[in-house]
């Protein structure tokens, strides 16, 4: 357990006049990375209550090879940030605020298959309402940018193939091993899908890249989405109403 809070504690008078403390309620937090928790045989699904279906789906892929942490910030957010690294996650979450649909960290060099599955889940849940797909991280130490970008690109292609195109602007900022090959794959995918895009290297201030993505979001909301829709040959699509 990482945390145990007994609250309130009431004192019960015993027959001999002594007071015995009684815990009336408690709150506990288990360390879900600890296999010992499984030994408790807690009811299946106990931990699901606080998680959205989307989070539960991603959590199923949780392994020690690469992070796959997600948190839904705003179910109506129209920026979908796929973030690499805990630091980048803090920065992006801070700067995008409620514009972002999720807070995420996929760092730690996830293998291609896992990244593709995680990306597919994110896209399936959020792509239709998304104006900006934002792939962002610092200069990676060990995450293979080619593998992770290729996985995201393939998931994006699949999502377009499965449910048809949707107006989207792609912004990316990244550095690290194989960054050019990775950006190359993402570029080819955007070109094939006819999507506008801008990718920044690690020599651009990351917070300004985040700001750029936010401005693209503003533009998409005020007419850009309709323009992209026209260029994709889609009928005019309004920005999805909140809750849609």
């Amino acid at each position: 357990m990482k945390l145990l809070e007994l609250n309130p504690i009431r004192m019960r008078p015993e027959g001999n006049g002594r007071l015995t403390p009684v815990a009336c309620d408690f709150k506990g937090e288990f360390d879900q990375d600890d296999p010992r928790v499984a030994r408790l045989d807690l009811p299946h699904g106990l931990f699901d209550s606080g998680y959205s279906p989307f989070e539960q789906e991603v959590n199923r892929l949780r392994t020690y090879q690469g992070q796959s942490d997600v948190y839904v910030i705003n179910t109506d957010g129209d920026l979908l940030p796929l973030t690499f690294g805990g630091g980048a996650n803090s920065l992006v979450t801070e700067l995008l605020g409620d514009d972002a649909s999720i807070s995420s960290d996929f760092g730690g060099n996830p293998p291609y298959e896992k990244m593709r599955e995680v990306a597919a889940i994110c896209l399936r849940h959020f792509l239709r309402q998304t104006n900006v797909l934002f792939v962002i991280g610092g200069k990676a130490n060990n995450t293979d940018i080619f593998e992770t970008f290729r996985a995201i690109a393939d998931a994006l292609r699949d999502e377009f193939a499965r449910r048809g195109p949707t107006p989207l602007y792609v912004v990316a900022g990244r550095g690290g091993p194989n960054v050019i090959r990775g950006m190359g794959v993402l570029r080819d995918t955007c070109e094939a899908l006819g999507l506008p895009y801008r990718f920044f290297g690690f020599d651009s201030d990351m917070s300004r890249v985040v700001e750029h993505a936010r401005l693209v979001g503003d533009w998409m909301r005020s007419g850009g989405r309709a323009q992209v829709a026209r260029s994709l040959g889609l009928s005019l699509q309004p920005v999805p109403a909140p809750g849609a």
């Binding site: 190359g184 506008p196 895009y197 990718f199 920044f200 290297g201 020599d203 300004r208 750029h212 260029s231």
Partner: peptide, 14 residues
């Protein structure tokens, strides 16, 4: 640390 796009295409959008 200026913004320096390495890749980009506006696909003819305004």
């Amino acid at each position: 640390l200026e913004l320096k796009p390495w890749f980009g295409n506006a696909q003819g959008l305004d």
